[in-house]
């Protein structure tokens, strides 16, 4: 994996009651420019509820223009069931602090051969599209956006969005009873259109189901589904390769527990979509929570994605 980058928090801004925005600048040297849809993983070193030192690593979409390498901007939504990462960002991180991030990587890039791009955002799912719009404008690409949110709590960046003829945006405020008619939006697009969805699972499923009903090619539907790992029952892990025994607590992910014990596992999204962290299971029954493995692979139970998945049995034995 590429070397981490040290960044200074140049500004902190409240975008909406639940969303805070952080502007990051390189401590030394230069940042990389990045392609639309890129994210970075932020390492947060803090303490957990019991006062013990704890490291979180969360992936956040870059919301700034990838052309501008002088700064990166990320938006962090305070998660209701946060295991601490977003709470840490909201309560601990101040201007002038130093953070460690990975170089940008992209699991949600636009398909540039598309004749038209339709962006469908729900709530904080607007974030990856913030870096789409400036590039779409530069390229003169036909683009339209549909943005659903619920009142001020999740409707970030409504003002900042550069709505114009080339990139029209339709807003739907759920709190005011407005709804995006997916059938109408998906059904009226010309040949060569690609669709990009980011938001809650219900929105992603809604788009997938509607697309299937309408007979649209699933190869033209792209979605970013990565979500922070959710807590679960604690379990024990035996590592066959290194002989280690590790306890995974309820509020940490298996990947975090491995890293805490000095075991490095390749990873990119930390949200169960990229496939990088795939690890072999020798014994025990995994509880699959990723969207990378196919249903058959999940049923085989001989591998799992430790960034989000946990154990259904009280212990797991991994080959590493």
């Amino acid at each position: 994996m590429s070397d981490p980058i040290q960044v200074r928090v140049a500004a902190v801004r409240t975008v909406s009651p639940k969303i805070r925005e952080f502007t990051l600048e390189a401590v030394s040297g230069q940042l990389f420019s990045f392609s639309p849809g890129s994210h970075v993983v932020v390492t947060m070193k803090g303490t957990n509820a019991e006062g013990k030192a704890k490291v979180w690593k969360n992936a956040y979409s870059l919301v700034s223009d990838g052309f501008d390498a002088s700064r990166y901007v990320i938006a962090v939504r305070l998660q209701d069931e946060s295991r601490g990462g977003s709470v840490f960002m909201h309560t601990q991180v101040k201007e002038g602090d130093t953070l460690e991030i990975t170089p940008p990587s992209n699991l949600f890039a636009p398909v540039w051969s598309a004749k038209k791009h339709v962006l469908i955002a729900g709530g904080v799912g607007i974030t990856p599209f913030m870096s789409y719009l400036p590039e779409m404008k530069r390229r003169g690409a036909a683009t339209e956006m549909h943005y659903s949110y619920r009142g001020d709590a999740t409707g970030a960046y409504r003002e900042e969005l550069q709505v114009d003829e080339q990139t029209p945006v339709t807003f739907y405020d759920g709190a005011a009873g407005e709804r995006c008619d997916l059938k109408a939006v998906l059904g009226s697009q010309p040949l060569g259109t690609h669709f990009y969805v980011c938001g809650p699972e219900s929105l992603i499923e809604g788009v997938q189901e509607t697309a299937m009903e309408l007979g649209l090619p699933s190869s033209n539907i792209h979605f970013e589904a990565f979500a922070a790992p959710q807590p679960g029952q604690p379990f024990a892990v035996q590592l066959e390769g290194s002989g280690l025994n590790i306890q995974v607590s309820e509020d940490e992910s298996l990947l975090e527990a491995l890293e805490r014990s000095g075991v490095e596992v390749p990873n990119l999204c930390r949200g169960g979509v990229c496939g990088q962290c795939r690890t072999q299971v020798v014994d025990g029954e995994p509880e699959h929570r990723d969207s990378f493995l196919s249903d058959t692979e999940k049923a085989d139970n001989d591998c799992l994605m430790p960034c989000v998945s946990r154990a259904r049995s009280s212990s797991l034995t991994l080959s590493i």
Binding site: S113, G192, P217, S219
Partner: peptide
């Protein structure tokens, strides 16, 4: 056909 804009899985 893909140049015309048809989706590969169609």
């Amino acid at each position: 056909l893909t140049e015309m804009g048809f989706g590969v899985d169609k």
